[in-house]
Structure formats: C-alpha cells, structure tokens
Design a protein around this nucleic acid. Structure first.
Length: 297
DNA sequence: CACTTGACCTGTCCGC
DNA sequence: TGCGGACAGGTCAAGT
C-alpha cells in the first residue's frame, strides 16, 4: 500500500529526523525482514552515522557514512516509524496517530539511534512480513536488480508526456492498468493511483494500451501527476495501516474519487461507482464514463 | 518472448 | 460465537 506518495512522505519525514544520528544497535525478530543482517550489521551498521535519506520508486534508501546503505521496501503493510526518547518510544501522538506504544506485535526490526539531541528508535513494523531491509555498499545500490529495471520517476521534470506514452507502449498488448502498475514501465504507481488517474482520464482500466489515443495518453499523464502530487501534499493515503515517519495518517483517501468508493456516486456524473477485477487487482471505476472500448486487434 | 497467475504473510470481514 | 474462506495488493518466480 505504500506507493510513491506514501514512501515520499516517509522520506520527507525521515530526512528531517535521521541525518546526523548514529546507529547504536539493531534487533530483528523475523529473518526475512532483514536477510543479510547477521553478516554485515556489526561492521557496517553499528556506529555508522546517517548521511542522507533518499527514495527511488517505492524503495527508501538511508545512506550511512560507512559507505553502506539501508535499502527498505515496505511492500503492503510496512511502516517505518521514528520515536524519540522524549516520546518515551510510545506514548503515541494525541491526534492523527494510528499506532500506540512501540514496539508492538508487528515490529520486525528496531534500530537504536543516538545523537547530541538524545536517543531515539526507528521501528520497521510489518503485519504481513512482506517488507524488508537490506544493508549493502552504497555503490552497489544502482546494481540491485529491481533498481536496474525500474522505470522513470513520473514526477521528474525531465519525464515528459512523450516519454510517458513511449514507456506505456512497451506493453502494447496488456491493459492500461497492468502497464501503469508495471514498475519497469513507470516507477511508483500502485493500485490506488492507477485507479484514480484512470478515472481522471475517463479510461476503462482494461483498455489495451495500443487502443489508447494520443489525446488520452496526454490526459492520463496529467491526471497521474495530479493525483501523485495531491497525495504527497495530503501526506499519502491511509487505507488500512499506512502511517508516516511520525506514526500519523495521510488524508488522500478523503479526496479519492473512486478508490474504495464502490456504491457511492461518481463525483462527475453521479453514476454509482463499481468495483471489479482488472490485472488481478480490485479495480474501482465509473461504469458510465469509463467504458471498455475493446481489446487490442 | 509476452503476459498472467500464484506465492509470500496476517488481519479482517462475510456467510453459515 | 466460532470457523472457513475470500480478500487486501507489491514484487518475484513459475506457469501458460
């Protein structure tokens, strides 16, 4: 569920909190959450100081002054929550907070941090255990399979409508929704923003890519950028358990037009929004405005 | 090769 | 109330 806007929101939060902090200890209770921890932690993690926090696609990168990087993928239910000692590591925030005392039963990895300002902890929580952290030399980051194959960032200024169309046409015979979700086509789009942008462009998610007109590509591009930017501004989407670096929810869901709004009125035409299945995913659409125009020839 | 489906997991919800 | 099964959806591996 963390998609581009959610991971970006966490990145913005951690970028204010982590740089300058030294990692003093790490614990993990689920080996798959931190596969290479045993071999590299002592030498390259403990005692290292955080230099910078970055994001690429849905991946978070925490660069350390040991020239190692923590690469983190939250997959579906991952949370990365920072608590300072002042917060007693878990009093919780009075408002907007989804989680209370930490660690909780979904905590998989705990990093202890220290700086001149005091002690803190960073918790990787993950109910479903799909997420992971890996430690690797910073220079190796670009060579990780996923990052070698992943497509361009949709909000980069250099990413144009022309490039958008070109990338999607890499998958001419699949549905436009499957192409949007394909991380090797474009980085960072998941189920929420695929549905939201397709509604914006009045495109049926099952429309085959080679049936999409130039005009529709251009509108879809603008709509995708719009929903991603709006969501970052609103702190992301909290559907079930997404929270930012401070444990707070994002509010995009109250601005969503179709996602999780089956049974409600389409904001443009009033038709009841339906939920169906496209590209193996739950898919929300307005059946009047998003007509299926036919499969590829 | 292009594309789709299943596995990885756990919590929640729905029907019986 | 309890219980089985479907469902949630990011990515990789396996299948068509």
């Amino acid at each position: 569920m963390p998609e581009l806007p959610e991971v970006e929101t966490i990145k913005i939060g951690l970028a204010k909190l982590l740089p300058g902090q030294t990692i003093s200890r790490v614990e993990h209770d689920w080996p798959k959450s931190f596969p290479n921890a045993p071999t590299d932690v002592e030498n390259f993690l403990i005692g290292a100081k955080v230099k910078e926090v970055r994001r690429r696609a849905k991946v978070l990168l925490i660069d350390l002054d040991s020239d190692y990087t923590l690469m983190i993928h939250l997959k579906m239910t991952g949370q990365l929550v920072y608590r300072s000692e002042k917060d007693r590591f878990g009093a919780g925030h009075p408002t907007e907070s989804l989680i209370g005392k930490l660690p909780d039963k979904s905590t998989r990895v705990t990093f202890d941090l220290s700086s001149a300002k005091g002690k803190a902890k960073l918790f990787l929580n993950d109910q479903r255990k799909f997420g992971w952290v890996r430690l690797m030399p910073t220079v190796e980051v670009p060579n990780v399979d996923f990052l070698k194959k992943v497509g361009p960032e949709p909000l980069e200024a250099s990413f144009t409508d022309k490039a958008f169309k070109q990338r999607l046409l890499k998958r001419p015979n699949t549905s436009i929704k499957a192409a949007l979700l394909d991380q090797t086509v474009i980085a960072g789009v998941g189920n929420i923003y695929a549905d939201e942008s397709l509604w914006g462009a009045k495109l049926h998610p099952a429309t085959h890519v080679n049936k999409v007109s130039d005009r529709a590509f251009n509108i879809l591009f603008k709509e995708l950028q719009y929903v991603l930017r709006l969501s970052i501004e609103k702190g992301g989407s909290t559907d079930k358990n997404y929270v930012n670096a401070e444990g707070k929810k994002g509010s995009y869901m109250s601005f969503a037009r179709v996602f999780r709004r089956e049974g409600q009125a389409c904001p443009r035409c009033g038709t009841i929004i339906i939920k169906t299945r496209v590209a193996g995913r739950g898919t929300h659409l307005c059946p009047k405005e998003q007509k299926f125009v036919g499969a590829a020839k």
